[in-house]
Design a protein around this nucleic acid. Structure first.
Lengths: 245, 245
DNA sequence: GAGATTTACTGATCTAGATCATGAGAACGA
DNA sequence: TCGTTCTCATGATCTAGATCAGTAAATCTC
């Protein structure tokens, strides 16, 4: 109890000494602007695995940045069916879909014990006027979000299961690398079911493909532990240059 | 020749007397702000069917609004394969994916003889500082764009062919209605192939489903002419409440 | 306005991936 | 810590929708 309180205090956000500064919203800001941004950011929030960060349809006056851990976002339709929209690593921004009316059109749940920085949208709007670079950076982020979604539409509509899964691993690998982790060995925080849901595949298909990739010495996998053994071949599959028998 | 020149002159954009003002970027602006925006908008551009509006990977300092006609946007991958991202009707904004670095990550082509309003991004950014409502409206538009893409991800990943096509027709119908056209009778400007590409289906499947919908008296269709005969049933199919044998 | 080309429709067949079913480890929880 | 519950893996079967093929009608082109 006592310790938890101390943890929370130490969690006071500071973009200035956050290692993610180059990947996150403050990218490109100078020291002064960074300080102004820092003042705005609410205390970081510690969330446990399966804990909700924000919910579809509910009002929330913030956008969110993952500081540590990992998060999934998803929409739920009226029949309760879920579609995972993305898995989010440290430095990535969540909730940009709520910039309109401050009501989010998706939900976010921690896949892991994670820390989340909260940025009140109203403050952000005010700050954007003061700091021109921030406005630009925000537009860049949203714009890139759209481009990412478009890539995903292409993946879902036009790629077969092998290509989808290979693309998924390559994408994750690159994002781990950008964060200073190994590009070739990492632990997944999401289940086979989640991966399948995200890629429009049955979880059995994901399992089978992972086994097939293992048989072909392209990856090694033990439950959540993944090693990429042959990056080039994995890319080849993703690009559709060839396919495993 | 002479007449064409006169046409172009008369095409000088004016948001003030555009009937689309409530659907488009100027939504919610007062008369003064509207005038300021008007000054910024470059002359409208007349484009013919199949003509390019902007191109993936190319620099373009504008975002675009459809004034009349219809437009499709699509990405092309390194193998030249295309994925249609959307069909756009009057009042809709294109090219928001280029707000980052002014390089568009998709292309836009007219499906019809169309007129397009061009808005230089730099001017827009400057104007956003002057007109707070505009900044908000722009963020709303982009934010909604993301939400739309998320709906599309759900459609592509989790819906069967019948649901996809039914959803497509209902969506078009609603958008025609919002523009003062009939919700039940309209002409398509895109081919069966385009519809299939957009929905992640083969064009033969689209043809077959249209025939099936006709057999079930849910729609009537003659080439590009579509009549929705039973809106309720079409919704039921889209929602997955039932399925045609 | 006659031939060439494109677009839409439909039948026959095939197959990628879903679904159903089962078992074996991990992880969880009282 | 031992049973219960997830999660993952894998075999067997099924099917929605792709692919291949051919025709007819609309549209374009000279």
């Amino acid at each position: 109890m006592e310790e938890k309180k101390i943890n929370f205090k130490s969690l006071k956000a500071s973009c200035k000494n956050c290692s993610l500064v180059e990947l996150c919203l403050p990218r490109g800001l100078n020291t002064d602007d960074l300080s102004t941004l820092d003042e705005m950011i609410q205390q970081r929030r510690l969330v446990q695995k399966t804990e909700n960060i924000f919910s579809q349809g509910k009002r929330s006056n913030c956008i969110y940045a993952v500081r540590s851990g990992s998060v999934k976002t998803f929409t739920t339709d009226k029949n309760g069916e879920e579609q995972i929209l993305g898995f989010h690593l440290p430095g990535e921004i969540l909730g940009l879909d709520g910039m309109d009316n401050q009501i989010h059109s998706c939900s976010a749940v921690a896949l892991d014990t994670s820390t989340i920085c909260e940025l009140p949208i109203d403050d952000l709007n005010v700050l954007c006027v003061k700091i021109p670079g921030l406005q630009q950076q925000l537009l860049s982020l949203i714009s890139n979000e759209i481009t990412k979604d478009h890539t995903m539409l292409m993946l879902l509509a036009r790629r077969n299961a092998e290509q989808k899964l290979a693309t998924f691993f390559i994408n994750l690998s690159g994002r781990f690398k950008a964060r200073g982790y190994s590009a070739d060995e990492f632990d997944l925080t999401m289940s086979r079911y989640d991966i399948g849901n995200y890629l429009g595949l049955a979880d059995e298909t994901v399992s089978r493909l992972i086994s097939k990739f293992k048989d072909n010495k392209i990856i090694d996998a033990n439950r959540k532990q993944i090693s990429i053994l042959n990056h080039e071949k994995l890319c080849g599959i993703a690009e559709g240059d060839f396919s495993l028998s």
